[in-house]
Write a protein that binds this DNA or RNA. Sequence first.
DNA 1: GTGCAACCTCAAGCTAAGTTGAGGTCAAGC
DNA 2: GCTTGACCTCAACTTAGCTTGAGGTTGCAC
Lengths: 145, 145
Amino acid sequence: MQPQFIGIGELARRTGVAVSALRFYEDKGLLNPLRTGGNQRKYLRGDIRRVSFILIAQKLGLGLAEIEAHLAELPLGRNPTLSDWQKISRAMRGAIDEKINLLTRTRNQLDQCIGCGCLSLAKCQLYNKDDKLGLKGPGPRAVLD
Amino acid sequence: MQPQFIGIGELARRTGVAVSALRFYEDKGLLNPLRTGGNQRKYLRGDIRRVSFILIAQKLGLGLAEIEAHLAELPLGRNPTLSDWQKISRAMRGAIDEKINLLTRTRNQLDQCIGCGCLSLAKCQLYNKDDKLGLKGPGPRAVLD
DNA sequence: GTGCAACCTCAAGCTAAGTTGAGGTCAAGC
DNA sequence: GCTTGACCTCAACTTAGCTTGAGGTTGCAC
């Protein structure tokens, strides 16, 4: 049972991610395909799952750098097992929970603001430190840091 | 009781937003200060609230263009009243609710994935169309469109 | 009347996450 | 052995949301 490699085109088709994006991910250290004698990328079938993880994590608002940090925890020598993936997925569940909590808190505060109509920097809870929404995700610099 | 104008520096101090950012918002049509004879910007005190709104809406993941659309609903002639602001805030509450719902759905799906360890494009619900997380907010192009 | 901070404009730069294009190579079928 | 499509690299462009810098003006205090 050989490794079963796939080319970049097939990985793109299987994941729905553009070829250019796959190369970009490699640049960023998220993927590490082997090369053939003719310098063409050869991916392991497990890389499909890796790309899947990238997509999910992005949907949760993680930047590629953070995602890379998560992926770096996968074993280097052997293929990641089911339980490796589960560990990492559970970490993400924590991230979602946190995000939901922050949004819920913000909603409550907004409700208060709607009540008093304030939207005032002096009084409004929405501006107080403790609620820095972790919504930044990918994208430009911080706003309320 | 005159209008009580403030300069860009004071608006920056009062809102915590950089002077350069305030000028940038003006470029984008989010602010419309008057000018003195010497061409310096003069803001109405109500603009503090306007900037506050921008900050909150950004935290909720809205892009400047969307925010501008909301702000455009404020009355042009008169100063916005408390109820103007309430109307607009309530719209935002809807946006938060939606975001929380999407995250909650995603969490449930992730739970299933953790259960089966799949993370597989073929089987995983996380890839199905209906869950496109509206998390994009400000930032680069879409991922799973 | 001069000095200084705060203001002005306009152009260029930055980051994230990619895409697009030019110009060239590889591999497989006929 | 040649054509075709998939692949390669590298540089430049894109959008959002700003910041930084150069070079010049305003306005207030002394």
